[in-house]
């Protein structure tokens, strides 16, 4: 993890700057006028980064599950849980921002769109992970078994993302003959805002997660579950 618990760490400042730039320019900047999309095209800066961030956090959780199985250190389990939680949180935000967008461009909050449903199923998979955590009392056993499930679930999540959109046409811009914005449609300014928004949300999520991991490690220390290395927590 990014190693600095100071609130003035460079990457935290970078997250703030990137997100402020994304938010201000996202609403004020110039956007191309497109059929159907209109002003809602600005949601590109807020909706799409949620999915990038979610995938990153779930990937990190997957990686730390493997690390946990190798080391057996409960600290790594805490990192897995908190990254999964943050990933799910961004997933829910992605669904909500997407539903708002869908209402204005497709006319309904929920549609048969494969990407939408794949995202919803992914949420189900990780909710099952959380339920599994609650079902096991012993901390070490809980950590070990849920790490195994997390490793098993991540390929299913990736399969959802790759398989689902191939089964039917998506209503998403750029799919199935819909007017879209691929790399050629976005001008330089849009790309700048888009990428800084993605990076900003990724850093923000990591920041949230490191805070939660630190909090949880303090609680564990109080409960006597972990005895060492609070300093290396974040």
């Amino acid at each position: 993890m990014l190693s600095n618990s100071s609130p003035f760490a460079w990457w935290k400042i970078l997250a703030f700057v990137l997100l402020m730039y994304g938010a201000i320019m996202g609403f004020m900047g110039n956007v191309p006028r497109m059929e159907q999309l209109g002003e809602t095209i600005r949601n590109l800066y807020f909706h799409v980064p949620m999915w990038f961030a979610m995938t990153l956090f779930l990937l990190i959780a997957f990686a730390y599950s493997i690390v946990y199985l190798k080391t057996g250190n409960l600290k790594h389990d805490r990192i897995v849980v908190e990254f999964t939680r943050t990933g799910m949180f961004f997933g829910i935000l992605g669904l909500l921002t997407g539903m708002m967008w869908a209402k204005f461009t497709w006319g309904a909050f929920w549609t048969k769109d494969p990407k939408l449903n794949a995202a919803a199923i992914a949420m189900l998979i990780y909710t099952a992970y959380m339920i599994l955590r609650d079902a096991i009392a012993d901390e070490d056993k809980k950590a070990r078994i849920t790490a195994v499930y997390n490793i098993f679930a991540f390929p299913a999540f990736m399969a959802l993302i790759y398989i689902m959109p191939r089964l039917t046409d998506s209503l998403h811009p750029g799919n199935g003959g819909n007017p879209g914005f691929n790399a050629y449609d976005r001008d330089r300014e849009m790309n700048m805002i888009f990428y800084s928004s993605i990076l900003g949300f990724m850093l923000l999520g990591t920041w949230i997660t490191t805070l939660r991991v630190r909090l949880r490690l303090w609680a564990d220390k109080k409960d006597g579950l972990i005895t060492n290395s609070i300093e290396h927590a974040s």
Binding site: A128, A156, I163
Partner: peptide, 19 residues
């Protein structure tokens, strides 16, 4: 590995087998 394995079986497996 859990106490309520029958319930968890459905909860854990359905989302994973959907693809």
């Amino acid at each position: 590995q859990t106490q309520h394995s029958m319930t968890l079986m459905a909860v854990l497996s359905f989302p994973v087998v959907i693809p």
